[in-house]
Structure formats: structure tokens, C-alpha cells
Design a protein around this nucleic acid. Structure first.
Lengths: 138, 138
DNA sequence: ATCCTACATTGGACTCTGTCTAAGTCAAGA
DNA sequence: TCTTGACTTAGACAGAGTCCAATGTAGGAT
């Protein structure tokens, strides 16, 4: 993630403390924070950061293809920094925990031509749902 | 859909004009209205119906497994009355049109055991994305 | 047929997410 | 170091959804 900032600077991004902090919060695997969670964690590092800036920065990272938006439950969107490795999501129906997963095969190919209604199909989002080990034990 | 009301009455549902109207609005194939769209259409048939009742009724239909909630874009949830026929969704990235589709094969089986993190996986939601014929032509 | 009462409905206030704007601030090139 | 346009800020606003107290009514009991 540290070279993310360099990459973005190469694309004309002005490098501010706020953007640095947001990028830092999003670093890691299986990270899927909501915008407000990102804001809370960013504010631990940079107390004056505003909600608007977090939303702006997340939106820019999404436009630039560095971060994915995921929406697994109809509530707040979550931001997934793992955009450069194609993956899908596995969600616990009870506690909402999200894991990145890698299904086998070509998922788009699962949709037969006669089920495409003339669409040019270019992507597929998959959400596997189940109960995580912690919730199953409880 | 007409026997839906009878089925629900058998489960102790009180049959009110409001619930009848909501069920009527949701009748049909490839129906994926937002709660506010359901409210608008219901209000054409029963002008006094309130938003709260529409939300309550939709929530009950979802709990009873008669209607599915689908969330394809992080905006308003949509309600899909086709809950008794397993299916997935194909969404136009430009105009948002949604079609019900039926992918081939067992989609849950695409997730290898070593990618399940100990979850008991029970369901999978798939959203195919692409450009619909109308948007491609325009 | 009417009465009762628990269940349903209503409108409005409220919460949560997210967007917008006008004014102030600052990164980085000159 | 100066300048300037891009960035940040606080707060107002908007959209989606929930909650609540007051009112209405479906349908079983009489």
C-alpha cells in the first residue's frame, strides 16, 4: 500500500496528510470498512480529518480502480483495498464478517447465452453466504 | 400471486386492503421495485397507504420468504417477488435495468473447501454486470 | 349482526448514509 | 518564497429506512 501513494502521485494526485491517512487505514488483507469506520480510524491518526474528505478520498480511490466498493447487506457500502487481485466475498449471515475468497472457474461463463437477454456481460459479483465458525460455535 | 394472500392468511396474516395492494404491485416477472416505487404504485390503487405500511409489509414478506431483497447498486434495496424460483440477477451498468437469470451449475460448489474459512456456506448471490441492448445501441 | 381487542395503519419525527457548497488552507511548481 | 489551483472543512441538505404514540379495523367471540 505504501507504493500506492507514489503511484497516485504519478497520476497527479496532490499528496496530503488526509489522503495518506486514509490509504494507511485501508492497508491490509480482508479489510472491508464502511466509510464511517474509515473516518473513525483515520481520525485516530489525524483528529481534524472531516467526513467529507474521507468520502471524497474513497470515491477517488474507487474511480482510480485502487479500491472496490462492496455492498453485501443494503446498509453502508464497504471499501475493499484488494482491488488488484480478482476475488469475491464470503459473508457471515449472523455477524456480518467478510472474507475475500477465490472461487474456481470462469464465473461469467456460467451464464448461458440464452440467459443474457442481449447484454454484453463484462463482470460478475458473487457473495457467498453462510455462518462463520465463531457464530456456529456460539 | 393471488394464492399468496391465501397462503399468508393461513399463516395468521390479517388480510387488509394495504397488504392486498402491496402484493398486487409485486405481481409479475422481472419485477424489482424499490420500496418507494412500491409505495407510489400502491398509492395509485389505495391513495391513503403510508410509507411505513409499505416498509412493514415488504419486511414481513421478506421474513416469510415470499419476497427477496436485492441490493445491486448500494442505493435503495429492491424487492423481488420471484422468491420461489432460485435465480440470480443481470444488471445494466448504465441504466440499472435488472433481469432475472438462471446460471448453469452449482454455484456454491465453485467455492473450494480451502477457501471457506470454516464457514457453513448455504447460499450464494450472483450479480452479472454488463450493458443492455438498449444502452449499447444508444 | 354487533362487539372487542389484538393486530395493523398512520404521519411525523428521527437515524443513518452519503452529497453538496462556500469559505478557508496548503502542496508543489515557478 | 510566492502563487495558485487543488484540497479540506463544517455544516446544511437529501435519500432511504426505522420508530413511535395515536388511531383504525379484521375477524373471532357473543
Amino acid at each position: 500500500m505504501s507504493d500506492l501513494l507514489e503511484r497516485l502521485r504519478g497520476r497527479g494526485w496532490r499528496l496530503t496528510a488526509q489522503r495518506r491517512v486514509v490509504a494507511e487505514v485501508l492497508d491490509g488483507d480482508h479489510v472491508h470498512y464502511t466509510a464511517d469506520e474509515v473516518h473513525a480510524k483515520a481520525a485516530d491518526l489525524l483528529p481534524e480529518i472531516s467526513r467529507a474528505t474521507v468520502y471524497n478520498t474513497l470515491g477517488e480511490l474507487v474511480s482510480l480502480g485502487e479500491v472496490l466498493e462492496v455492498c453485501t447487506d443494503g446498509r453502508a457500502k464497504r471499501y475493499d483495498p484488494n482491488a488488484h487481485h480478482a476475488h469475491q466475498h464470503l459473508v457471515c449471515s449472523r455477524c456480518g464478517t467478510i472474507r475475500d475468497v477465490h472461487p474456481a472457474g470462469d464465473l461469467v461463463a456460467n451464464l448461458p447465452a440464452e440467459e443474457r437477454f442481449g447484454f454484453q456481460v463484462s463482470a460478475v459479483d458473487v457473495t457467498f453466504r453462510g455462518i462463520c465458525p465463531d457464530c456456529a460455535a456460539a
